[in-house]
């Protein structure tokens, strides 16, 4: 290669690089600029909190049956499909004490707790491992403490499922619509598509219009929901007056779901 050709290629290469970076930076600049001529705001009736949290009074649920209407309310509100095998979807489900709180293992646990069912859902951790590992920010923590999902952006890598220590996440191995009634239980809420991960959202869409989460509403006061940062909130009062536990607290994730047992 002779000298002039080499220097030409050098200059050409550098200018191509400069051009591409400037194009890229202008692209990202336009991505940030708003398209809409209008503006955005929060709903007037929306419920606000610094840190949403849930307190489940498991003492007031006698059998697994007592949870049934709550699970149904959740799964109906969010069009959660009922898939019979182990590639299933769960937002709100039940398991035994031993499985829900494996660190509290005790061979001689009293019969009531040994036999009882405990409701499981996304813990909306203060320090969520799923958010830490997501490579596209498809799952993220909002300023009110809710760990939310953007199904549009999820690439289905399932890193979050490996990361979640609570097994709170489900992957759509199959097309969920095949396992839903037609019309779907809640026509005002979308379904999910095949190949994305989903989980409980603390009903962010209901809080935005001033409603309590579906499970809380269906529980008749047995599940409390409120602002953990507010000492006068129902959840703080319940926690102050009762003994509570959380799932796997030693992992440092700071779950936002408390169990009165």
């Amino acid at each position: 290669m002779n000298k002039s050709r080499r220097s030409f290629l050098k200059v050409a290469g550098i200018s191509a690089f400069a051009l591409s970076t400037s194009v890229a930076s202008s692209l990202s600049a336009t991505a940030q600029a708003k398209v809409a001529p209008g503006s955005y705001e929060k709903g007037a009736s929306a419920l606000h909190a610094k840190r949403w949290a849930m307190v489940i009074d498991t003492r007031r649920f006698l059998t697994a049956k007592d949870y049934k209407p709550i699970i149904e309310a959740c799964h109906r509100a969010h069009n959660v499909p009922n898939i019979p095998d182990d590639q299933n979807i769960k937002w709100f489900w039940l398991d035994s004490f031993e499985h829900a709180f494996p660190d509290e293992m005790n061979e001689f646990l009293d019969n009531r707790r040994k036999r009882a069912s405990y409701p499981l859902l996304c813990n909306h951790c203060t320090n969520p491992p799923c958010v830490r590992v997501c490579p596209t920010q498809a799952t993220y923590k909002m300023e009110d403490g809710i760990v939310a999902m953007d199904y549009h952006r999820c690439i289905g890598c399932r890193f979050c499922m490996a990361g979640c220590p609570y097994g709170a996440r489900s992957f759509n191995f199959k097309d969920p619509r095949k396992f839903l009634s037609n019309p779907v239980p809640n026509p005002a809420f979308p379904t999910r598509m095949i190949g994305v991960v989903e989980k409980c959202t603390f009903c962010a869409e209901r809080l935005a219009v001033g409603q309590m989460p579906a499970c809380v509403e269906a529980s008749g006061g047995k599940i409390l929901f409120g602002d953990l940062a507010d000492p006068n909130s129902t959840v703080r009062k319940a926690l102050a007056e009762n003994y509570s536990i959380r799932r796997k607290p030693n992992l440092g994730t700071q779950p936002g779901v408390y169990y009165l047992i």
Binding site: V35, G38, Y40, E41, K42, D150, A188, A208, V209
Partner: peptide, 29 residues
């Protein structure tokens, strides 16, 4: 796309149009 990001990530679920009218942000609803 902008509606989606504002609603899901910033909890801005109301769009105030340029004529001042307010709309709930929802493709489906």
């Amino acid at each position: 796309n902008e509606w989606r990001d504002e609603a899901l990530r910033n909890e801005h679920r109301v769009y105030v149009a340029s004529n001042g009218k307010k709309w709930a942000i929802s493709l489906q609803n």
